[in-house]
Design a protein around this nucleic acid. Sequence first.
RNA 1: GGACAGGUGGCUGAGCGGUUGAAAGCACCGGUCUCGAAAACCGGCGUACCGGCAACGGUACCGAGAGUUCGAAUCUCUCCCUGUCCGCCA
Length: 424
Amino acid sequence: MHDLRTLRDDMPMLRAAMERRGKIDVLGPVLERAGALDKERRRLILGVEEQKAARNANAQDVARRKKAKESADEQIAAGRALGEAISTAEAALSSVESELGELMFELPNATREEVPAGDETNNVILRNWGTPRMDAGVPPHWETGAALGVLDLERGVKVAGSGFIAYRGMGARLQRAFMQFMLDLHTRVHGYEEVWVPFAVNRASMIGTGQLPKFEEDMYRLRDDELYLVPTAEVPVTNLHRDEILDASVLPVAMTAYSPCFRREAGSAGKDTRGLLRVHQFDKVELVRYVAPDRAEAELELLLAHAEKVLQLLELPYRVLLLAAGDTGFASSKTYDLEVWSPGTQKWLEVSSCSNFGEFQARRANIRYRPAPGEKPRFVHTLNGSALAFPRTFACLLEHHWQADGTVRIPVALQPFLGASQLG
RNA sequence: GGACAGGUGGCUGAGCGGUUGAAAGCACCGGUCUCGAAAACCGGCGUACCGGCAACGGUACCGAGAGUUCGAAUCUCUCCCUGUCCGCCA
């Protein structure tokens, strides 16, 4: 959510931002309309408030006269007329405000200047870590997973439908090991507070982080209650301090949480859906930080390093991408993706997305901090990243560490958590 | 799920339908005093929006929304949340 003042004072910046995202065709007119509505809104406010001031003065007058036992009939009649005028004016104002509000919810965040313009073909590979396995003959994870008895795709489909996974035996245990391994790393080494949060959230939370109102069709919604299954722990964790003013001394707030993630993936049917590549329910450990604005850039690098550390310990070769504006998420001002090489499918798979949201989410969720006693509250900047999403990590693990005898080597760092040094 | 009782500023807690944005206390900030601190005393101390270069002025906000009224924190309705008891239950 952008500040209305930006609309007023820096329209060229907003236009340029939509241009870089490749959305100017659709959003240019939205910006124009919003700008006009903002002007209209202020004009109406002026009138309404003037009338209200008159009404308040008139009501005081009535009170004074009644106290003095004078007649107030004239004032009461005047007040009634004012009241009618006010409700007409307010109706006009509220219709302008609700349209303006809807338009503002349509506008994505502006990306930072170092983010390249254009679509995903403009993403920049910043660096590589490790050596991708290029030898032929590494089977895809769904074959290895079935052979080792750790993945039961057919039965996942039977009990829930396509995109729902059943893990078995050591495969199930590996999920638990992932959770413990990642949470321990982030809490004990990287200094995050571990939190465990609701996996269903209300509408206000979904609006706070930017999933709603724009992406309703991607969310699982509970029919009888105004609740949504979380698409990522980002939602409940970031919203933990919604509508609060934090003391500056608590920044940076760093929280990590495990959660299952539920995504309808509307519109992406049939795309990269083999095995674990794209599923409706998956598990993930998430990192969330609230930081002071001037720290946001540095803290994003820090958070990215925390996510990378997981891959390094899992000994999985990866690359770091700086996403181009058009590929950057709606609420984000800058996003790094971590992609792991999958030798079984000959693809780079995204296992983490680390973003700086600036004040875009904090403004929606109303998360502020007071820089110093007596100073005005300011919005925090929010950051988050997966560290990591389990299924694709699982897939790459099964492929990259696959050995010619059909077994899978378990990286040393994970062994104590799994209680085994190999699968099979 | 049922029955009661509640939801007021950072916290505690007053508040007859009419100078109540809201008493008081705590916390916090500034000052006096002190070598310094504490105590005491004095003063200040909400958020958002609109107008204004500014000083400042205006409007709104007492869980949320609607209503009654010249005027609502105060009355009515709906919803949400919290507490207590009962029921059910992992």
